[in-house]
Simulated scan of single mutants.
Amino acid sequence: MRVVAGDELPPFTRNTGFANWNRYAAVNDEFVPIHMDDESGRAAGHPTAIGMGNLQWSYLHNLLRGWLGGQGHIVRIEGQFRRLNTKGMTVTARGVVTAVEQDADGVRTATLDIWTEDEHGNTLLPANAVVRLN
């Protein structure tokens, strides 16, 4: 796999809302009212129910795994939640390669800036990742 600094990853996009959240909650036993019910979201000061933070992590994992296409694996992801994902939002995970290195044993790694953003380009979850390339 040829990877150079500056490469942009193909985006991973999802429209968010109850259907996506319900499937995620079912798999993770996360039926928390603030994630499932608009009234609970409003009671907490939000315009709607809010998406699960870990669902955004899964979007970043999908972004990286899709880009790697079986030609490597994720070593590390670190990030910080900055904005909420509310119902009806379109969330896109994006990324760019910032560095590629090879150690003395020939192991190649890539460092990336990755993030999720809403349909207006507001960053929801800025992060960075290291992947090992095959």
Rank of each mutant, 00 (worst) to 15 (best):
D118H: 00
A129E: 02
A127K: 00
L9I: 09
V32Y: 13
W67E: 08
P33N: 03
V75I: 11
S58N: 11
A104N: 05
V130P: 00
A26S: 15
A99M: 01
R82Q: 15
L68A: 07
M1W: 09
I114A: 03
R23S: 12
Q102M: 11
A127Y: 02
I77F: 06
N15P: 09
Q56D: 11
R65D: 14
A5H: 02
L112K: 02
R94A: 11
W115I: 01
L133V: 01
T92D: 08
R108I: 03
P10Q: 02
F12V: 12
G51H: 06
I114N: 02
P47L: 05
P10K: 04
T86R: 11
R23P: 03
Y24C: 12
G66M: 08
G17F: 09
Q80Y: 11
D113P: 00
N128T: 08
A25V: 14
E117P: 01
G70V: 10
L55K: 06
E8A: 08
Y24K: 12
A25P: 13
T123E: 03
V100T: 06
T16R: 13
P10L: 05
V96I: 15
P47A: 04
D103R: 02
G95P: 11
P10T: 09
L112Q: 01
L124H: 09
R94N: 09
N134I: 03
Y59P: 04
A127G: 04
A25N: 14
N28P: 08
L68D: 05
G17T: 10
G41D: 07
V75R: 13
L125E: 03
P47Y: 06
V100Y: 03
H73R: 11
T90R: 15
W67K: 07
V75E: 11
R23E: 14
G51S: 07
W67G: 06
A99N: 05
V97L: 05
T48I: 09
A43P: 13
A99C: 00
E78H: 13
H120S: 05
I34F: 06
